[in-house]
């Protein structure tokens, strides 16, 4: 028996919206410790890793480890039938091939359940080694989204460089070029509005902007985003999910041959 209950159903909607553009089908792996997902986009350039710890749920029961294959667009559509304040419960039998989403209104005067067929998805888990990153930038998530969107008006590739001076985002295209520099800024009143740069060594990497724009669909999940980079490693773009875990996106760089 699997039973996951979340008072803030809206959170689950945001999680699905953050993944469905990048990944179509994925396995939700549930165990006593929580729910996780690891999947690559169809071109294997980006990887998304989601973790929702069991202690972040209002009720979490998972008697047996389960890997439940779902079409993320179908789940996202289904969750759109829930109100943002609805309590969402996921239920699945140990041997069943369906999952039930139950939506309860906050006043408990409306209860809906939607049953969805599970899919058999063959996917292998990749081992993601622990790495010491050369540069880690924490910044407001809306600012990061804005930068990616603004640069995409000029080019389709971004060079992200971290130096002592700050983090520089550069692009070039047919109509011209653009540079946006963000300096460390920790003097603002609210920590979620600050930009913090931890740099061991300067680093400069090139990425396809369209993936970064897909990642920024996670912006509603967190006020801040953390970007970690090292030469010859995929960058990591992490959005924390309050009290529950994270969604991390790994993006392979473009490399000169």
């Amino acid at each position: 028996m699997l039973e996951l209950r979340l008072l803030q159903g809206g959170l689950l909607k945001k999680v699905l919206e953050a993944m469905r553009e990048l990944v179509t089908d994925a396995n939700f792996d549930c165990s006593r410790s929580g729910c996780s997902l690891q999947a690559m986009d169809s071109s294997h350039v980006a990887l998304v890793a989601l973790l929702l710890r069991s202690d972040g749920f209002d009720h979490f029961r998972c008697d047996r480890n389960r890997s439940m294959g779902m079409n993320l667009n179908h789940v996202a559509k289904l969750l759109r039938c829930a109100g943002n304040d609805d309590i969402v419960t996921l239920k699945a039998d140990d041997d069943g091939d369906t999952v039930t989403f139950m939506f309860e209104s906050p006043k408990q005067d409306k209860i809906a359940d939607f049953e969805m067929k599970l899919m058999d998805i063959q996917s292998e888990h990749l081992g993601i080694p622990e790495a010491e990153y050369q540069a880690i930038v924490k910044m407001p998530s809306q600012e990061f989204a804005r930068i990616c969107r603004d640069l995409s008006t000029i080019g389709d590739t971004v060079v992200i460089s971290v130096t002592k001076e700050g983090v520089k985002f550069s692009t070039k295209g047919d109509i011209g070029s653009a540079n946006i520099v963000c300096r460390q800024n920790t003097t603002v009143d609210k920590p979620e509005e600050s930009t913090v740069i931890e740099m061991k060594d300067p680093v400069s990497l090139t990425f396809a902007l369209r993936y970064l724009i897909s990642f920024t669909k996670a912006t509603p999940l967190s006020n801040t985003v953390t970007v970690s980079m090292s030469s010859d490693l995929p960058m990591v773009v992490e959005y924390k999910i309050a009290d529950m875990g994270y969604i991390r996106y790994y993006l392979a760089p473009k490399i000169d041959e």
Binding site: S43, H44, V45, A46, L47, H125, L126, T157, Y250, E257
Partner: peptide
């Protein structure tokens, strides 16, 4: 022109 790498170049199956 820089060439797009894939994730499998960096991470191996478990």
């Amino acid at each position: 022109k820089p060439k797009q790498q894939t994730i499998s170049r960096f991470f191996a199956p478990k």
